[in-house]
Each structure stands twice: as C-alpha cells, then as structure tokens.
Design a protein around this nucleic acid. Structure first.
Length: 876
RNA sequence: GCGAGAGUGGCGGAACUGGCAGACGCGCGAGACUUAGGAUCUCGUGGGAAACCGUGGGGGUUCAAGUCCCUCCUCUCGCACCA
C-alpha cells in the first residue's frame, strides 16, 4: 500500500462503485423519514466553476450526513438548460443551441461525477427536453384556464437597427450590446402570469419561513412592497364628458389638506382628454414624447431631476375645496397605484422639489413637536411620521396626530363616498413572453375566426422546430419558420397561426424541484403522491443572486400548483442556505489591465510583474472570481492535480458556507496535506487494526478499565463526534467541524507516537474506535478517501448508509478540569481539579495556589466569584 | 434615503446562554530524518524588554465585555422617485 495517497486511482474507483451499486438511488419509503436536499441546478454553460463546486460540496455534506442519520434522502440534480447563451452561441459560432447545450451537459455531468456527489442520477431533469417543457406548456394552459395567464400590451427593449427585442442584460447603458444603437421601448402584446393574485399570500408566507436568512426575507418583502392607504377622487374643476374626477392613491391621506396640485404619469390615457383644445396641448405632447423615448433605466434613476408641465386643467381638492392645477410629471409611475398622485409639497420631498421649481404653493399641514416649522421658510419636505407633532390647517382634523388623522380621514373618505381604503403592492405581474428561440413555446394559437385558442392538451408538447435561422436580427427566430407558425385552428380547422414567443426560463426553474419527485411522470407534471411524500424541500442551497426572482416565482408556482391539486405544499423550501461568493485576489498591470497568475513573473525583490511589459503588478482587491478580472481557478485542474476530496474540503473549510470565501492556493494545499496525513496514519495503523476487525461497535470497547491513555483517546473520539455533529446540525458550521477533525487527527498522531511497543488490548480497541469514527465523520466531507480507508480497515463498503457515530455524554466529560484563577478579573493562575469538585473544594485549592498569594499580597478578598466548572475570580 | 450584514494576529477564520481572546489552517521561525527536499515528523509563533497592552473609535453596565447598552466611524451587499 502506497504511503502517498493516490486520489487519481481512488476517486474514480468509488465513483464507479456508487454508480454501479446505485448507492444514492431512492424511492418513496413510508417507513422512513424523508429528507429532501436540493442545490440550485446549473445552467449548462460549458464547464463548472468554483461557485458550483462550493454549492454542491455544501449540499453533498448535508445529503450524506442526513443519509447516515437514517433519513431517506432525495438528492437530485438536473439542468436549467434553456436560455440566451445557447442562442448567442448559435448566432456567433453557428452551433445549434440544442447541440451546444447537450454537449455542455455531457461535459459538466462528467465534471460533477468527478466531484463524487451523492446524486440520484436516475432523476436527472433537463428543462430543454420536450418531456420536461411539455409540462411548462401544460401548466401554462391550466393557468390560462384559471385566468392566471393573460395577454397584455407591454413595453420591451427594442433595437431599431437589429430590429429585434433585447433582454435587459443585452442593454448596456441604454445601448444595444451588438450594434450600440440606442435602445427604445416598444409596445408588444405579451403574456403575463398573475402573480399579484398571490401577493398577500406570498407576503404572509414569509413569516413562516423561519429557516430562511433574514435578508432574503427582507428583500422579498421589499419586492412585494405592500402599502396601505386610500384611493380618493379629486373632481375636475370643469368635467370633461364622462371624466368627472381623477382618482389618486395615497398612503398619506393625513396630508390631504396640503395637496396643492396633482401629477399624472406621462403614459396616463387621461392626458389627451385633459389637454384637448387647450393652448398647453402641444407642450404636453412634446414632453410626453420626450420622456417616453428615454431608456427606462435612465428615466427611473433616483437622482433624476423632477420635471413636468402644466396641462391647463384643474381639479378640486375635496377637503380644501380649492382649485389645484393638474400637471404631468416624469417621476409619476403609470404602473403603480392609479398613475396619478395628489402632490403635497410640504410633506413629500419629490413634490417639494417639483413645487419649488415651478412656483406652486406649499401648504404646511403637519407641524413638528417643537412647532418650529414655518410654511414660508421650509427648506425640505417634513416627511416625519413617527415623532411628528400634529395636523394644522386641516379643518376638523387639525390637532390630530398622524396615525389618528390617517385613520379618521380614511373613514371620512369612505363615509363621504370620496373613495375607499386600498392596499397596493409594488409587485407586478410576471411577464413571461420572450421573443427567443431557445425556450418553451407558448402553447397558444391565433385564429381569425375563433380568436385566441389554447393548444389542446392532447397536442402537447408543442415542439421547438429544429431548422431555424439564427441571425440575431429581425423578428424572433420561431416567427421565421413557416411550418411552425402556420397551423390549423383546433376549434374550426381553418388556417391559423401559432404564438411564436417562448417562455421566460424562470418558468422552468419555478417547479423543477417538484418534477424531481416523479421525474418520469407522463400523465401529469407531478405525481401528487410522490410530491406528497417528498415535498417540501428540507434544505435548499444556492446563490444569493436568486434571493428575489427565482425564489419568489418558485413560491408562486408552488402555490398555484397546489391550487391545481398537484401538491399539498404551501411553500417549496423549508430552509434556505445562501452560500457566499468565491473570491480571489486580483492583479493589474497599469498598461495591460487585469492579469492572470500566468501572465506575471515573480521577483523576490518587489513582487509580481507583468510578463509582457515588466512593470510592477498592482495587487487589486479581493473580488468575486470572474473571467474579466482574470482571477478564476479552474475546478477541473484542481480535481486532476489534488483531487475532488481536496477541492471539496477546502471550499468547506475556508469559510462558513454563508460567508464569502477567499481562495488561497496554499490553503488548498493545507487541505490536501491533511487528507494525506489521514491516509498515512491509517496505512500505519492498518496492520494493527485489521486484526479483529469483526469487533467494530463502540460497545465492544469497554468503558470501564483500560489505561488512562486509552481513556483519554476515547474522550477525544467522543468529543470530536459531538463537536462535528453539533457543528453540522447548528447552521452547517462545516469549517469548525473540519477543524475539529484536524485536531482529532493531530491527537491521534500524538497518541500513536507515544504508544509503547507492547500491545495493550484496551489501547488497540480505543484506537480502532477512533479510526473508525474518524473515517465515518470524514465521510460527508471527503467521501472517496473515507470509503477507501473503510474498506482498507476490513469493513464492507459503502459508508454511505453506515449509521453516523454516536457519542457517549459520559465519556465527553473530562475527569479533571483546568480552572482559571482571576484576581480582579485578570487571569493570574490556573489550577487543575477533579471534575466533580465542589465550590468549596475549588476555592480552597485556589487559595492555596502559590501564584495567587503573590497577587493577593496578604489582602483578603472582598468577594469570591465562582462559576461552576469555569473559573474563580477573587475581588480585592 | 430604506433594508440586511460585517469590522478580531502577517492572512483565512475560531470563541454555546457575558466567564482562559486568537481553536483549526495558511504563512513564518527552530529542530529531526534525509544525498537533497518545496516530502514528512516535532516544537514554537498577537504586540511589548517588562509592567502591561490588545477584538473599528469613544463612553457605559458588570467581579468579569469580542459578546450587553449608548454613540460615532468604515466597508460590503440588496432595493431605490412605489405616492
């Protein structure tokens, strides 16, 4: 047996074993408690990166640990295979997106296998396959039936030169990523999912997600953005036909007496009516056109200057009965509220700036507690609500506090029939139409006679045609395929046209975790019984970048599918772990930009230099690994040179999972060194431990008798077991669990070195227990090495289902304790006492301590503090 | 501006309900074994000559504070004209 651990031989061997033995294949087993461990499935971009390694290493520890704890563990993997990069590859290199994707999947699947991850590969799911996306279509149709999918005109990014729609990420500072033309907004008919129907449930549900990080919950709350207020009608001073009033939404009804003007969104359809036959008409139209031409990102930037124009029309403030001008303002959003606001310059900063700029009156209606606000001399809006004083200039409501006024004015509005209390959400419906090829075709047919006709369920899937022109220009690729577009109407059989938009790829990832429960189901997307057993996901692990969209859509889908009777789960993910980014230091050359490590030469005198121009490389910040910063480390290279176990171990050891991890090549070597240390230790012990390999359980090691050295070793074994177990259970503190394993190994080395030549049976037994425990505890972290050692010690493979070691609490406790002695809170000495010493005994021993008397200098302590088993503190 | 999180040795990071600050690893130093080692093993390693000083700064509570309270500073991330 080689003393150097050969991961190149060992790792593939166990990967093949697990595969052949179907070690990680699971089925529903009602006699066992299930545990569903899931990592976010990857986009098949070509090769795995360190972020994947970290993500999947974390998940694999959880899955393997839970399996050893006796759970029936579902741990699946698949591919988020639709998406823009495949289509870009087609445009740029002429490869078909399907082929490109399949090749990437094949390669990356191999890489994941090399990592030794405990997946049930028989459940693998690929979203770009018709067997999967047909169910996207099926779900879409069910949503359509229930009014949860609908069509609406909506703006998209449009490049006038490429004549194509651009995704948000293809718009770079308002310009097309390919041709640099200015991107404009264009209105198209598009499909939406009515996620807003679930706004309240999505918000309420967050309270129950106790296993989610606070900041993700906060982001989702913020995204849903619930606000309670009132809608109020402001009558027009001169009614225009049917239009007698303009409705606004406000959360600050308490300031309504201060509303000195109104503002409409530039997109408001009311505008045309208001400006007709007025001298202002031309100016308003010009303003609206100018604003609507602006890029959305530019227009909604927070520091954007507030501007607007007067429409010429007036409304009546229903409380003050004053005529107030109606303006159009660039900062008023058409999509939110009613697209019109009452403007209260004294108590809203935006309105304040606007009023100042255009000379509109400012009316103070809330006075601060000190009464120092003067209407004529405000330099900013007074927006304070919590500590605000009281209403002024507000008729019968003057004198009320802000909360009281909100309440009473809302009541008054309703009583007078001016409007009603309303709850508004920031959350918008989810636009799912994409003018792309590589996605799920939307299963809808447009017939001149019958109108919009859903594709009958029996005709699913609507397959993507294979021969499609990829030019990156003009209409969506599918629209150019006549055989795809022209179709017979399912109802009347007359010639009709297919929808050519495909679905947002977030649709695919919104329910894949449900599909894993019954990946081969062909009657329904999900077998309710299977979902009933496995759902919800007990532990979901992935990047923080999905804190809002993916996780919110997945929650929405789960609820919608629940309402279709496919699952009983209300929430998809019981617990969420958002792993930190993998970062690394960066280097820059003043002339050649970012540098790869290979682009630099080392000088002992003054560090790294640019290999091209010899100028000194500046050490940049530690940043997230990225190609552009040239600070990436290729996992494959690492796996080949040092092995998968090392790669896994380092990504778990260098930082707690939820924190950013700073890559360090020497740190990686340290982990490799540790595994080799374990290997050599076991190789050396093997002859001793193999004999009598049949006695394996810890009960065989008698806890009475034995040498004190064997007792010490057993204590270390059981302490380590406790530490590793609690560290995994408590917030997945893998870094400290691994540290404990390292201490364990250090202790074992020491024990072996000090061990005499004579064969003490108790010591051998204790050693055997220690070795076996070490291997099992190491199993979830470095599974290949652990399997190999387990077998080497004469055990039957595999460790995957060997019960997790138990610790004996009696053994964990020491017989002797070291008690620090403090004088006035400062450490002055230490004494060793038997663990069962009483308070009096410890204090007496402490008083006798030689070093202590030096510090007491004859003075008798005023007070003695004793903390059980912890310390003694003399106060003088 | 709002929300979340973080600031501890030369570095990554430990420290459960307040109770020995710096576990473990890296790096560094010394020694051992070696023809040699950048392999391996052992020991040491916060600063300071010492008294002492040390967990972003200042204040407080306490016998005792990285941990609790007040206050300030810095950094990271997310959202950001949502009425």
């Amino acid at each position: 047996m080689k003393r150097q651990y050969d991961h190149r031989a060992v790792e593939p061997r166990w990967q093949a074993y697990w595969e052949q033995q179907h070690t990680f294949r699971v089925t529903e087993d009602l006699s066992k408690t299930k545990y569903y461990c899931l990592e976010m499935f990857p986009y098949p971009s070509g090769r795995i990166h360190m972020g994947h390694v970290r993500n999947y290493a974390i998940g694999d520890v959880v899955a393997r640990y839970k399996r050893m704890r006796g759970f029936n563990v579902l741990h699946p993997m698949g591919w988020d295979a639709f998406g823009l990069p495949a289509e870009n590859a087609a445009i740029e290199h002429g490869v078909h997106p399907g082929l490109w994707t399949d090749e990437n999947i094949r390669y990356m699947r191999g890489q994941l296998r090399q990592m030794g991850l405990s997946y049930d590969w028989s459940r693998e799911v690929t979203t770009s396959e018709p067997e999967y996306y047909r169910w996207n279509q099926w779900i879409f149709l069910k949503m359509y039936e229930r009014g949860l999918a609908y069509r609406k005109r909506s703006a998209v990014n449009w490049c006038p030169s490429c004549e194509t729609v651009l995704a948000n990420e293809q718009v770079e500072e308002g310009h097309c990523w390919r041709c640099d033309s200015v991107v404009i907004q264009k209105e198209l008919d598009q499909w939406f999912f009515k996620i807003t129907d679930y706004a309240e449930e999505l918000l309420k549900g967050l309270d129950g997600l106790t296993g989610w990080p606070e900041r993700v919950l906060a982001m989702q709350r913020n995204w849903i953005g619930k606000s309670e207020g009132v809608e109020v009608d402001f009558p027009l001073a001169e009614p225009l036909g049917d239009l007698k009033a303009i409705r606004v939404f406000t959360t600050r009804q308490d300031t309504i007496f201060g509303a000195t003007f109104m503002s409409l969104a530039p997109e408001s359809p009311l505008l045309e009516g208001l400006i007709q036959n007025r001298p202002q008409a031309a100016v308003v139209r010009e303003f609206v056109t100018r604003v609507s031409r602006q890029d959305k990102a530019v227009r909604t930037a927070a520091d954007r200057e507030k501007e607007g124009v007067f429409t010429g029309a007036y409304a009546i403030n229903p409380f003050t009965k004053l005529r107030i001008p109606i303006w159009v303002a660039n900062f008023v959003l058409y999509e939110y509220g009613t697209g019109a606001i009452m403007a209260v310059p004294a108590h809203d900063q935006r309105d304040f700036e606007f009023a100042r700029r255009y000379g509109i009156p400012i009316r103070l209606v809330i006075q601060n507690p000190t009464g120092s606000l003067v209407e004529e001399r405000l330099d900013a809006a007074y927006e304070e609500q919590k500590s605000a004083g009281a209403l002024v200039n507000s008729g019968q409501f003057s004198g009320l506090s802000v909360p009281k006024a909100k309440e009473q004015i809302a009541e008054f509005v309703e009583a007078q029939g001016l409007g009603q209390r309303t709850v508004m959400y920031r959350l918008r419906d989810w636009g799912v139409s994409r003018q792309r090829y590589w996605g799920t075709p939307i299963p809808i047919i447009y017939c001149d006679a019958c109108g919009l006709v859903p594709v009958p369920e029996g005709d699913l899937p609507v397959r993507l045609p294979k021969d499609v022109p990829f030019t990156g220009r003009g209409a969506s690729p599918l629209a150019q395929v006549r055989e795809f577009v022209s179709v017979r109407c399912p109802t009347c059989a007359s010639p009709a046209k297919r929808e050519t938009d495909t679905m947002d790829t977030f649709v695919d990832s919104s329910w894949y975790f449900l599909r894993y429960c019954s990946p081969k189901a062909d009657q329904l997307p999900i077998e309710p019984a299977a979902a009933g057993y496995w759902m919800a996901v007990d532990q979901y692990i992935g990047g923080i970048e999905h804190a809002v969209l993916h996780l919110l859509y997945a929650r929405f889908f789960t609820k919608a599918l629940r309402d279709l009777g496919l699952t009983t789960a209300d929430e998809p993910f019981r617990s969420l772990l958002t792993q930190g980014m993998v970062c690394k230091e960066t280097y820059r050359c003043p002339t050649h930009g970012w540098l790869f490590p290979d682009d630099m030469v080392w000088s002992d005198k003054d560090g790294w230099h640019c290999a091209q121009c010899q100028s000194q490389a500046e050490k940049g910040r530690v940043e997230k690994m990225s190609k552009s910063k040239k600070n990436i480390v290729d996992p494959e290279h690492l796996i080949v040179t040092l092995g998968a176990d090392t790669a896994r171990l380092f990504s778990l050891f260098a930082a707690p999972p939820d924190k950013d991890l700073e890559w360090s090549d020497s740190g990686v070597e340290g982990c490799s060194r540790f595994l080799n240390r374990v290997w050599r230790l076991m190789i050396d012990l093997q002859p001793l431990l193999r004999q009598g390999a049949h006695t394996t359980s810890s009960e065989d090691v008698s806890s009475s008798g034995g040498t004190s050295r064997s007792q010490e070793l057993r204590r270390l074994t059981h302490r380590t077991t406790k530490k590793v177990t609690t560290d995994i259970e408590r917030e997945f503190q893998f870094n400290t669990a691994i540290a404990a394993l390292m201490e364990f190994v250090n202790g074992l080395y020491k024990f072996v070195a000090e061990r005499g030549p004579d064969d003490q049976p108790a010591e051998t037994q204790a050693l055997r227990e220690a070795a076996q425990t070490l291997i099992l505890l190491l199993g979830p972290f470095a599974p290949h090495l652990a399997e190999e050692l387990w077998e080497m010690l004469g055990q039957k493979p595999s460790i995957a289902n060997v019960p997790w070691p138990q610790y004996d609490p009696a053994l964990v406790a020491s017989e002797r304790l070291t008690i620090p002695i403090q004088v006035n809170g400062k450490l002055r000495s230490k004494i060793e006492v038997p663990a069962d010493s009483s308070e009096e005994q410890v204090i007496t021993l402490a008083r006798q301590d030689a070093k202590l008397s030096e510090w007491l200098q004859g003075k008798s302590p005023r007070r003695v503090i004793y903390v059980e088993k912890k310390l003694v503190n003399f106060v003088v």
